[in-house]
Amino acid sequence: MSTTRSAASADVRTAREHLVRGAEQRIHRLLAAEVAKWSSLGHGSTDLVAAVQRMMDAGGKRLRPAFCVAGYLAAGGDPERADEIVDAAAAVELLHVFALIHDDVLDNSPVRRGVETIHVTYGREHQDRGLTGDPRRYGEGVAILAGDLSHAYADGLAARLPAAAREVWAELRAEMIVGQFMDVRAAAESLMDTGLARWIAVCKSGHYTIHRPLALGAAVAGRTDLDELFRRYGTWVGEAFQLRDDLIDLTGDSAVTGKPTGQDTAGYKMTLLLTLAAERDHRVRDLVRRPGRDRPAAADLHTLLRESGVAVQVEHLIGELVGKASALLHDAPLPPPWRAELIEMAHHVAYRDR
């Protein structure tokens, strides 16, 4: 029996991975066509496309396409008639590229996926070539436009999807952007509120990483009736995903993650880690509220967070969230191999190291 279950799990994983690779190939073909389209103009006319391609080439976990494809296959979608789900999964990954490029500008991050971020590259190019204007504004401008272009490509792919899937797509985009705005606003206003911190984690990351990609895939397969199941599963697993991100930023190894550790603390992000620590320790509250928020204060804050013990509390919450998501799937109206696969995927995203 266990051998049968193992073979079934391998089959569903192979089918998922095959379609995710198809989505990657779809993106690369699209970007190659765009380079050919714009190259005749010269004057760096393909630089924005190249920036999107560079982000794709840098790797990444491809979690959102994986959950999108999983939603489709778990809902009974035909792996042999996969054009629409490949487009959907490619759109989700291109939207993620858009979000990453803009996020790097918002956070002033120097490195992403182990390579220099786009705004840094073009800011330095501006300076090296002695161009007119402010190098930083130029670099950020190029990055914003590259992100916008990736978003446009994503929308172009999503426009081909069935009407029900396009509705999910619209919600996915709006939630992610509003959640990102609330993240920025909470940091600017020093809103040390644990409830808000958890809402932001779900809205800016959880829904668009887990819930909506699953629902998008299911909608492509014609199974909008699974949305409530995927909403509950995706909200729990999505929050666990973001909380793991927060822990990685606090204690992770930048050589493994491909980005600097401590970026959230340096940006005074009102994560659950920080808001829980603020409830316990007046020194954390005082540092967050300190005028100017200089680098020494951020370094002290990072040390306090590491020593506060809140990481253990957040780790426990991650376990609770994954446990609830796994229990939900035991009696879910899905094929047994997909119940097992989604449980495995929940553990993977919640307990990763990068």
Rank of each mutant, 00 (worst) to 15 (best):
C203K: 08
H18G: 06
L276N: 03
A10W: 04
R113A: 13
I101A: 08
A164P: 06
E84P: 14
P135H: 02
S45P: 04
E17F: 02
H211N: 05
D227W: 09
L145M: 08
L30Y: 09
T257G: 00
V120M: 08
L145C: 01
R185L: 03
L301S: 13
R285E: 04
S190D: 09
V184L: 05
W169E: 02
A163L: 10
A298Q: 12
Y153K: 14
V184R: 14
I144R: 04
V168Y: 01
E175A: 00
H282E: 13
A350E: 09
L30V: 13
P337A: 15
A174C: 03
V322Y: 03
C68E: 01
H126W: 10
T224S: 10
A197N: 05
A197F: 14
L304Y: 07
T46N: 11
R293L: 03
R137Y: 11
D225A: 03
S39K: 14
V115A: 14
Q242G: 07
L229R: 15
P296H: 00
F98H: 06
A90P: 14
D249I: 15
E80P: 02
H119P: 05
G141A: 13
A221H: 10
A8Y: 03
R185Q: 08
L131H: 13
R54M: 04
D253E: 07
L149D: 10
V322Q: 06
G309D: 10
H18P: 00
A298Y: 02
A174L: 02
M270L: 11
Y72L: 00
R223T: 11
P65G: 14
H126M: 07
A299K: 03
A277C: 11
L94R: 15
F230I: 01
I101Q: 05
S150H: 00
D183N: 10
D87Q: 03
E307I: 10
G258P: 00
D294K: 05
E315G: 15
G292M: 05
V310I: 09
L31V: 08
Y208H: 05
H18M: 06
A7M: 12
M192E: 09
L196G: 11
L41S: 04
G76F: 01
L95K: 03
A159R: 04
E24A: 10
L131T: 15
G76C: 09
G123V: 12
L63Q: 01
V20K: 07
H211V: 01
D294C: 12
A158M: 10
E228G: 15
G179K: 10
G71F: 11
G179E: 00
D47M: 12
A58P: 13
L106S: 07
R244E: 00
T121A: 07
A163P: 04
H207C: 03
T3P: 06
Q53K: 07
Y122W: 14
L301M: 08
H28C: 07
V256W: 15
H330F: 13
R232A: 08
R137C: 09
V237R: 02
L329V: 06
Q25G: 08
A15Q: 10
L247R: 13
A164R: 05
I210V: 11
I318H: 13
E24Q: 11
G179H: 05
V35N: 08
D294M: 08
V256R: 15
E24C: 08
T235A: 12
A186Q: 02
Y208K: 02
V288F: 08
A10N: 12
M182F: 11
R16K: 07
A299V: 12
T265I: 14
T265H: 07
R13Q: 15
V178T: 04
L243C: 07
H207K: 14
R280S: 14
V86H: 07
L106D: 06
